[in-house]
């Protein structure tokens, strides 16, 4: 598809260097699906939908900084939604999110709740100012937060909080996660006896978004994250690059 032009209808500051842009068109989006967002004159980058009509942007580079500088009435383009989304559970699920991974975590939390699932969502951040969607998700799920500096909730990594929640509630039937890959890898490690029950949403460098160019293919399956993923089950990610490295725009390996 060609890019569609969107107009910013609202801009909400979510935290330090993080904002949500709502736009003038609603998409049929499933949790984990992404768009290729085109900041005119700058670049095109993959970002997960955080709402059916919105994205949550964290400034991590030229294109995301340019996205953050947009205000109401400004326009940008999008291709999508693309990708293979989460299977939405209907029994019980613990969802672990952090950083830019909170967009799919939010949609998954809401979709699982709407499906009748008992949902516990854990939000991790470095500090309280970086926590996003705590209030939004508390309406539909048991939300717990962890901050590395202890400024809110559990003090430490969100995986420590996950251990506490598992002790308290017992092992969940389903696990979902999106966020920094070392975090997701640590989540998967805790369920290494049943990795197929763990769904993980990956971030990779992408150019085409539709499974042609190969920029996002992961080792050692060669699977293109943009079309087979971004959501994989843990048993599809063993013996490969998951949690170890990713590739940049020149296909050079970058270790986490």
């Amino acid at each position: 598809m060609r890019p569609i032009t969107l107009e910013v209808t609202d801009r909400v500051k979510e935290g330090d260097g993080i904002a949500t842009l709502r736009f003038d068109r609603s998409f049929d989006v499933s949790p984990g699906e992404f768009g290729m967002f085109w900041v005119h004159g700058v670049d095109e980058i993959p970002m997960s939908f955080a709402y059916d009509d919105g994205v949550t942007v964290r400034g991590v580079g030229e294109a995301t900084d340019a996205m953050l500088s947009l205000s109401e009435g400004d326009t940008f383009g999008v291709r999508g939604p693309f990708g293979t989304p989460f299977d939405v559970p209907d029994d019980d699920v613990v969802i672990v999110g952090g950083g830019t991974g909170m967009a799919p975590v939010a949609l998954l939390t809401e979709a699982a709740s709407a499906n009748g699932a008992d949902v516990t969502t854990l939000i991790g951040a470095g500090t309280a100012d970086e926590l996003v969607f705590e209030e939004r998700l508390s309406r539909v799920a048991d939300v717990r937060v962890a901050t590395e500096d202890g400024t809110a909730g559990y003090e430490g990594l969100v995986t420590g909080l996950l251990d506490d929640v598992t002790d308290e509630k017992g092992a969940p039937s389903n696990v979902g996660s999106c966020g920094p890959e070392p975090m997701m890898s640590a989540v998967l490690d805790r369920f290494d006896d049943r990795p197929g029950d763990v769904q993980l949403c990956l971030e990779r460098y992408m150019k085409c978004g539709v499974g042609i160019c190969g920029s996002c293919c992961i080792d050692d399956t060669g699977s293109p994250v943009c079309s087979d993923g971004p959501v994989y089950r843990g048993d599809e990610l063993t013996n490969g690059e998951f949690g170890v490295y990713h590739r940049d725009g020149a296909a050079r390996k970058k270790y986490f």
């Binding site: 890019p3 700058v42 095109e44 383009g77 150019k207 978004g209 539709v210 160019c213």
Partner: peptide, 8 residues
Amino acid sequence: PGPNVFVD
């Protein structure tokens, strides 16, 4: 810089 690819 992108967009790098699109299918019509």
